[in-house]
Write a protein that binds this DNA or RNA. Sequence first.
DNA 1: GTTCTGTGTTATGATACCCTAAACCTGCCG
DNA 2: CGGCAGGTTTAGGGTATCATAACACAGAAC
Lengths: 230, 230
Amino acid sequence: MNGRRDASGSSQSVEDFLKAVYNLQGERDRVSTNALADALNISAPAVTDMAQRLVDEGTVDYLKYRGVRLTDKGERVALQMLRRHRLIETYLVQDLGYQLHEIHDEAEALEHSVSDRFVEAIARKLGEPSYDPHGDPIPNLDGIMQERSLQPLTALKLHSPARIRRFIMDDPAMLQNTQERGLVMGATLEVVERDPFDGPVTVCLGAKSTQTIGYKMASSILVEYIDRMC
Amino acid sequence: MNGRRDASGSSQSVEDFLKAVYNLQGERDRVSTNALADALNISAPAVTDMAQRLVDEGTVDYLKYRGVRLTDKGERVALQMLRRHRLIETYLVQDLGYQLHEIHDEAEALEHSVSDRFVEAIARKLGEPSYDPHGDPIPNLDGIMQERSLQPLTALKLHSPARIRRFIMDDPAMLQNTQERGLVMGATLEVVERDPFDGPVTVCLGAKSTQTIGYKMASSILVEYIDRMC
DNA sequence: GTTCTGTGTTATGATACCCTAAACCTGCCG
DNA sequence: CGGCAGGTTTAGGGTATCATAACACAGAAC
């Protein structure tokens, strides 16, 4: 028995496995067992083990020594998990007052036990959002995501107004730091200075404040150009 | 690994086990293996198995052939689960538009994966409620519940106005039926007729409608006397 | 093409949970 | 107080999910 009351019948381990494959699988290449072992924090044999079991379930395509790839069925499950995860994250922020850096772990746990009924209830309540609080696109029921073309802060032209649209960072501490510095979703800014050789970027946030941001963080903040700061 | 991010570290099975012991344990008596096997839908040996494991964790006091009893620690866990369960149920109704008969299963799954942070967030949002949508009391953080003295519909004096305060029924179908018939939480009514020998009870719900209710259902609906119908 | 080297797999084992079948208590009955 | 019936436990298995240690393969280096 497992926690889910809906279709799939997958266990938490299986769902996490499929998610990990999805995340590591770029275009059409296979994912190595070691990469999965790292991502899932389990041993390599455990990955082989799971891969072989999932072949029977038809969610994964596995070739000895060549790695793992999702089947269409597996990809559907992964995208469903992604939808769950991102909707739950959105919900935690919107309705329960969670901070951006707190939501990942909570969603990670909830996504496995929540029913479809629940997920669709919060989706409706949130107004069927297309993006989660990190700015990551939320797959719709058919697994389709609305991709955008955004620029990292490090690639922004000087003195061109832009709006923060996405945070690509997993570290909760870094995430928290961005928020505390006023680098929040939707904030408008322009780059006033940029050091060469992957040095820091200095941005002006409205009239309010100026922040100098390390390269790593700056490249993890994506923005879109806007006409004027407001 | 299990789904919880908080303290306890209990698995879903363990938590369900402790809840079951709590539910079956009246005052100070022990709960029999078979009773637990029935309640949990597992075999008797599986219960013995679990009981022996939980002794090591200190949540349960188990004597061979004499049954199981919660320790103080075990009772704390059980009450914490009860709090979680009932707060989640309240939340599902209040904020997500669930119907009364839909909430039990969803809460049953969620209570195991949600964090304390989550539970307390919804408690705050709901205004620290003392009762869940069934009218069951919600333990506070110290495990204390506000008990009330309510009457079953079957014990009500004729023509005495009363208000529905609690539904003691597990069957979702019966629960759903009460709601459809207007026997909802807080509704005011009076008994206009009662058949002898555990026969049906006829109640008048305001001016709106009159319902004749079978004994079993009527005895599962608890009310409090009020001064006048309104 | 043969040989390394590191990546991946098999072998073996552990744990939590469960089951069925068989052996075992316990309390009641006479 | 012996014995039976029914509730309990022990024995013996099974699956999913992990781990460690030992072995096997693949691709690069020569």
